[in-house]
Amino acid sequence: MCKLHSLFFLLFSIFSYIKLSKGSQPISKTITVDLNGLADFNTIQDAINSIPDSNNEWIKIHINQGTYTEKVTIPYQKSYIILEGDGSNETFIQWGDHEPIIRPDLDADIKISWNTATFLSLADNVILSALTFKNTYQDLDNPQNAVAALINGDKTSVYGCSFIGIQDTLSDLCGRHYFRDCSVEGIVDFIFGYGQSIYEGCTLNTVSSGVPVGYVTAQGRQQSNDPNGFVFKNCHIGGSAEAYLGRGWGNYSRVLFYQTYMENIIVPKGWIDWRAGYGGNFTTFAESDCIGPGSNTSGRVKWEKELSDDDVKKLTSISTFINSDNWLDQQPNDYGYTSD
């Protein structure tokens, strides 16, 4: 389901990997954005557009504090971009597009998500830091697809960012991603996609709405040999509404919560098979060493998986699950990543 790059971009990625194989790379240039005209650009999109196609040196776009009401896209051909704010409580990117989910098939779901997203990140090698991405659609009695951010590029790391919405808040759509010290807010499938991602030290909050019960995740793994899945490590789940930990968006959906604190909002069954339709025979929904009143597994569905210590270690290890080629080590190291 992930978009295939053209031969040009494949060759470009190989060249870039060779170029970056020696370790953490410096930031070659910093440009700034300010709403009041006190910087290089007034809009984030203009700053992104100024970066040449096929760029292969890290360029930082620092976004001064303020609320930027604009849809923002990092195109496929503009890699090695850092978007950095003054803090997730200081720099906001927001828009309010929304569409009802018809769900004839997965491709239709994805197309709608692309249409509504406040922020689209399509390029490989991107860093996001100290920003809030928000979809301002606020009809709590009628949740619709209203994506705050959609990440479809490989090798994306996200530090100290917030994602705010109601339904489909964060589309962790495709690629290897690392989220650290982030927060995600919503009620229906508010983290969804085919991403191969680790969320470390993140906060996941449900919001009250007209929906009787919510779903934290909807992971879309389609085949048993697909490497993707969502891993939540040392996270915190809370909020104001009951929710399942996840439901299967693909036949082989894979989600693991590890050493995560769960408030008393988790539905006792924990999981729903949903679209997979196989009674959980092929899904990998699991919990390991979690704590808190919502972590009691005695009422969980019978098909929740009990992973071996070795399997848990493989999934929760950054170096094993998402960083086998050391791409995180090759990114500028100013943003808090440390290898495990």
Rank of each mutant, 00 (worst) to 15 (best):
313 K>N: 11
54 S>T: 10
326 N>M: 05
305 K>P: 02
108 A>P: 05
7 L>V: 11
242 E>S: 10
294 G>C: 05
181 D>W: 06
5 H>G: 13
128 L>H: 07
201 G>F: 10
33 V>R: 04
55 N>S: 10
175 G>E: 08
179 F>Y: 15
73 T>G: 08
140 L>Q: 11
251 N>W: 04
269 K>A: 14
76 Y>T: 15
65 Q>H: 11
300 R>H: 11
17 Y>E: 09
39 A>Q: 01
61 I>T: 03
256 L>F: 00
261 Y>P: 00
108 A>L: 04
214 G>D: 00
113 S>T: 10
137 Y>P: 00
266 I>E: 02
217 T>Y: 10
332 P>I: 04
313 K>V: 05
246 G>F: 08
87 G>H: 12
14 I>V: 09
20 L>F: 13
125 N>V: 08
92 F>L: 06
295 S>G: 01
187 I>A: 03
320 T>K: 12
91 T>P: 04
52 P>C: 05
28 S>Q: 12
296 N>R: 01
226 D>C: 00
295 S>K: 02
236 H>V: 14
65 Q>E: 15
180 R>L: 11
89 N>K: 14
83 L>K: 05
63 I>M: 05
269 K>R: 15
90 E>I: 11
247 R>Q: 15
156 T>R: 11
140 L>K: 15
301 V>M: 10
272 I>H: 09
215 Y>R: 15
16 S>C: 08
303 W>M: 01
340 D>A: 08
7 L>Q: 12
61 I>R: 07
238 G>R: 09
255 V>A: 04
93 I>D: 02
308 S>C: 06
143 P>Q: 05
266 I>P: 01
192 F>R: 13
218 A>F: 11
313 K>R: 13
179 F>S: 07
312 V>T: 00
108 A>N: 15
80 Y>P: 00
155 K>L: 15
219 Q>Y: 02
170 L>H: 04
94 Q>Y: 03
1 M>G: 08
215 Y>I: 10
193 G>V: 06
42 N>F: 02
125 N>L: 11
151 I>V: 13
191 I>H: 07
307 L>C: 00
67 T>A: 14
64 N>D: 13
65 Q>L: 06
32 T>C: 01
12 F>K: 03
295 S>F: 02
72 V>H: 06
331 Q>A: 08
75 P>L: 04
243 A>L: 12
78 K>D: 01
248 G>Q: 07
330 Q>I: 04
60 K>L: 10
195 G>H: 02
333 N>E: 05
214 G>S: 07
289 D>V: 01
